[in-house]
Design a binder for these strands. Structure first.
Lengths: 267, 267
DNA sequence: CAAACATGGTCAAAGTCAATCAAATTATTT
DNA sequence: AAATAATTTGATTGACTTTGACCATGTTTG
């Protein structure tokens, strides 16, 4: 195992847990305690962690090191993230600004007393931080979404069902069933593609079932789609074009204007 | 457990409660009273808390509101510990090693073909990383648990219901309802307290309902409890002592041996 | 006052540390 | 391709730190 890999692993363990011990690391990485000690010393010298007797702990946030001390080349970058969730993290940066705008607009539509369904997905996820209305109830199939909603002190419910790791969503027929008791006033749905012929499409059949049912059970439906989604078609159609009001930052083809209920954001 | 972690935990407890006792800390952290005394002395020397006879209080601007907090006025059993208010990260560091051992043992009990329920909680959470059996199906009410299970490529299902932010669990009667379809071969339940009189207890009534129902729907039940849980009583009893097999690292009082189905871990 | 409890000091045992050195690995030169 | 240099690693060492048990002393409570 390369030194760099150990550095990565140690930092990752510190990010997720709150401390690491020399003994545990030695066992976990299959190297001697001497080596772990050296690693911890290096990382501490580079200002990436705090050495304590028996192991190491993450830096207190105020303890951030001066950036001008890159004493050790070959350390993983500071903004290193959990590699496991990299897929989703990467996805979140794609068209981030546009998604943000669309999400911000959508968030303003939530009113006191609403029962809101928020679909799993990155665009709908951005909504959560921008919700100001505290008097609504939220239902979602996005696992991260549920955590963030609850964290913000909003009343939130999660659907049951199979967990899909890559999108961190709850999906499948069980999720559809557990939608059965709800009647939403508003639902906010993400989409992988909007196309004149194929309607609203997504990549996963199990996710599409949940979207379709949520739309069916909702009085008002909003589809969140940044401009890049127009003209794209994914494997499964979950609703026709006119199933809801589309919120977008940019309409590449004016021809859609006649077929869509539309909220366009003008900067 | 690292000294540093104890420091953090003690300060955390002081921030959320108004005082801590040497006896309780010793019990909660699983170290001797000598050690706690030393810790308190160190923290006091560092000017981070105020030492008082029997424990410590925060050194906030307004003088500490002495003993006799109303929460403990109503004659709860002597050893009652209030871990409810601790955030999840702190909770995770308490007795971390012991939990790990208990969790490791529990993980070995899962076999091919099992339908396993994993209760939300930190001890049960440690199980997940140690599960080797890939041929089982997992159901949980722990939101992080579900993500980690799925991340590890294990087939996992999440219950529906209200999301409780502080424990990152799905709870309430809806969660109980969504247990309705399942019949588990094995379930792994965490507990806040094990007491001869009060049985298995937990701090939250809505969490207790879920635990009770999961136990009812399970052929085999395993209760995960590190040694520090014995003799503790939390607000709500969710099952009698003999509801399942208790897995523990250490039995402080041999008297329990006659009342429990027991798996004891010997190092 | 007496019983119960809390405290700090001492000690032995266990755990952790940095320094050192030889073996193994990797990089560079010949 | 072989030889050499540089680096990394694991084992060992003695010094140091932390820990839990014990106990004489001090404090609280009824």
């Amino acid at each position: 195992m390369l030194q760099y890999e150990r550095f990565e692993t140690i930092m990752q363990m510190l990010n997720t847990g709150s401390s690491v011990r020399v003994t545990d690391l030695s066992r976990a990485l299959g190297v001697s305690e001497s080596t772990i000690r050296r690693d911890i010393n290096d990382l501490a010298a580079a200002g990436r962690l705090r050495k304590v007797f028996g192991g190491a702990v993450p830096l207190d946030n105020g303890e951030a090191p001066a950036d001008g001390t890159p004493a050790f080349a070959g350390l993983p970058p500071k903004h290193m993230v959990n590699t496991r969730s990299l897929d989703l993290e990467t996805k979140e940066t794609i068209q981030a600004d546009e998604k943000q705008e669309v999400a911000a607009k959508a968030a303003t539509l939530i009113e006191e007393g609403d029962l809101v369904y928020i679909d799993a997905g990155t665009t709908t996820g951005s909504m959560i931080d921008q919700i100001t209305c505290t008097g609504a109830v939220f239902v979602t199939n996005g696992i991260r979404h549920a955590l963030r909603l609850a964290d913000r002190g909003l009343k939130s419910y999660l659907l049951s069902g199979r967990v899909k790791a890559s999108t961190e969503a709850v999906i499948g027929h069980e999720a559809v069933d557990s939608l059965g008791r709800w009647h939403f006033t508003k639902s906010f749905i993400g989409t992988d593609g909007i196309d004149r012929e194929c309607g609203l499409t997504t990549a996963d059949i199990d996710e599409s079932m949940v979207k379709t049912e949520a739309i069916r059970r909702s009085k008002e439906v909003f589809v969140l789609a940044d401009g890049s989604k127009f003209g794209l078609v994914a494997s499964v159609t979950f609703a026709p074009l006119d199933a809801g009001t589309v919120i977008t930052d940019h309409l590449p083809d004016p021809g859609y204007r006649e077929q869509l209920k539309l909220v366009e954001i003008h900067k």
